[in-house]
Design a protein around this nucleic acid. Structure first.
Lengths: 146, 146
DNA sequence: GCATATCGTGAGTCTACTTCACTATGAACT
DNA sequence: AGTTCATAGTGAAGTAGACTCACGATATGC
């Protein structure tokens, strides 16, 4: 019989697997990978950004962003605009379609959240408290070993 | 301002990222990938198993298990034993080192769980309730679209 | 005893990333 | 001004971890 923390962690682990599958499936139907979706989110949130900045936000190398932007550009989701003051850099911006796509992603996520947590209002605050604390501890852990 | 379910899902998403990083880092130090660790867990839990069964448990193709077992064999973690009744099949079994490795993984996981959830006893039952329900719903979702 | 299914593996491919080298440009310092 | 050093993005090539396909060896059902 596992102790309560171990049982909780096991559930979390299972959740990550299921959630990952679900997201990949949903994104796949839109022709997106997780990283491409992440890039769309990033541009949506931060506005037009250089590829260097996007690389840092996504946690990938600049070279990877080049490819991502190439492919998202071919799909009509983003465009490369010239940077107003730095001629080395390009500003990645969302097209109209890209903005709609991003809005759709956010809406889909919100809808999934509603479906997953519906009717659990009573326990939800405690859930969120624990989750916040765990995330904070985990972040501290990973930073201390960086 | 996001609604509570959306905030909770965002936290979950962040947790999956951080937890994944942490696990990969820790496993990497032991020369393991996530899938190899999963295989060790599977054999530890189910006892000596055919590669076909392991493929199903890991959710990968049999071909992938061949490579996994090759490499774990080279590392001295598992061995291939002949199946007593089916001469096509091989039984993947843990070596003594492999069993120790598996036990270490379990211990490490338990220790991490303790560290992450320490002092949150009051909210932990609610947390686990929500998590269990969410996992169940997610599983239902993925199965209905299979 | 023969047709058909299953186990594991060689050969080759794919995807999402990486590193390295390079050009073009910017910034800082005499 | 010019020289030096750092930075933005990209071509070329490599890597890790999966996959498909085809095949030999064995098992199973009729």
């Amino acid at each position: 019989m596992p102790d309560a923390p171990t049982a909780a962690l096991d559930l979390v682990l299972e959740l990550t697997v299921l959630l990952g599958e679900d997201m990949r499936r949903g994104l796949g139907e839109l022709g997106l990978t997780e990283t491409k979706a992440h890039l769309v989110f990033a541009v949506q949130h931060a506005g037009p950004s250089t590829q260097r900045v996007l690389a840092d936000m996504l946690g990938v190398t600049p070279r990877t962003v080049t490819t991502l932007v190439d492919e998202l550009g071919a799909a009509g989701v983003v465009t490369r605009e010239s940077h107003p003051t730095d001629r080395r850099a390009t500003l990645v911006t969302l097209t109209e379609d890209g903005a709609a796509l991003g809005a759709g992603l956010v809406a889909g996520q919100r809808e999934l959240a509603g479906r997953l947590f519906a009717g659990l209002d009573e326990d939800l605050p405690a859930f969120t408290r624990v989750l916040g604390e765990v995330v904070a501890r985990l972040r501290a852990l990973t930073e201390e070993s960086a």
